[in-house]
Design a binder for these strands. Structure first.
Lengths: 130, 130
DNA sequence: GTCATTGCAAAACGTTTGCATGAAT
DNA sequence: ATTCATGCAAACGTTTTGCAATGAC
């Protein structure tokens, strides 16, 4: 299963960097403007491959479509519960996460390997509008 | 929109206590054994109502169906990445969560109102089997 | 030439909804 | 009598998949 080059995949990766935590559909719509023959299936297939290969990160949400993050490094997110915008929270102290993992292990007796942490709040822009 | 009694809802709530963090489909299958005419739509409708009323908790997962927790109190979960079993992590110190919220706010400039924290690891039983 | 990747359309999946019937108040 | 809840089936939105054609190596 050797990976081969494809323009589509390249465009998807570039789109991911340009857009801010987009969904597959948003990537699809963006690329369609300049490359109308691309298919949504191709977008999904490539996003899955890139997640699998550790090139990008998937941000799953309840009910809503997944979003994708061009930054695969471990970091977490806070979502504005009013406008839905997603903000990065890189810079959470590592010791704090380690403490949290320890607390979880103490509660449940299972060693933490990874985590999905999604925070919700109202962003500055939405707060201003009231 | 006054809520009325229904046997179905009662059965769903009891099933939720008996089963361990089940999905809607699992609740449906369990009830069907003793009450075959129940419909999946009714199960979903009632689960949504109970979540809305703060009687139970919804546990959303990426791609997979939602699970439901009969305990509506704030607590989090660790999922066995091998067998999928869900363990409660009640007892995470409140100060630790407060520290985490603070760190998130410091990173992203958004005040945390709520959070979805899902941890992954391999449970004791699965570790034994290798 | 081999076989990974594409576009397309259909299917799969979890979930919600419209509607006529039935049950709770 | 009112109107909320049910069962059923159809619809929904997201994602995956089967397949023949195309393109990378």
């Amino acid at each position: 299963m050797n990976r081969r080059f494809s323009v589509q995949k390249k465009m998807i990766k570039e789109s991911l960097k340009r857009l801010d935590h987009p969904t597959a559909a948003q990537v699809y719509e963006e690329i369609r403007k300049v490359y109308p023959q691309i298919s949504l299936g191709t977008v999904y297939r490539n996003l899955n491959i890139m997640v699998e290969d550790g090139e990008i990160m998937r941000l799953p949400f309840s009910g809503a479509p997944d979003h994708f993050d061009q930054n695969p490094e471990e970091h977490y997110h806070i979502v504005c519960s009013r406008c839905g915008r997603i903000f990065d929270t890189d810079g959470i102290p590592h010791e704090l996460l380690a403490e949290l993992d320890e607390a979880v292990q103490a509660c449940a007796g299972v060693e933490v390997q990874s985590r999905i942490l999604i925070f919700y709040g109202i962003c500055a822009a939405c707060k201003k509008v009231q």
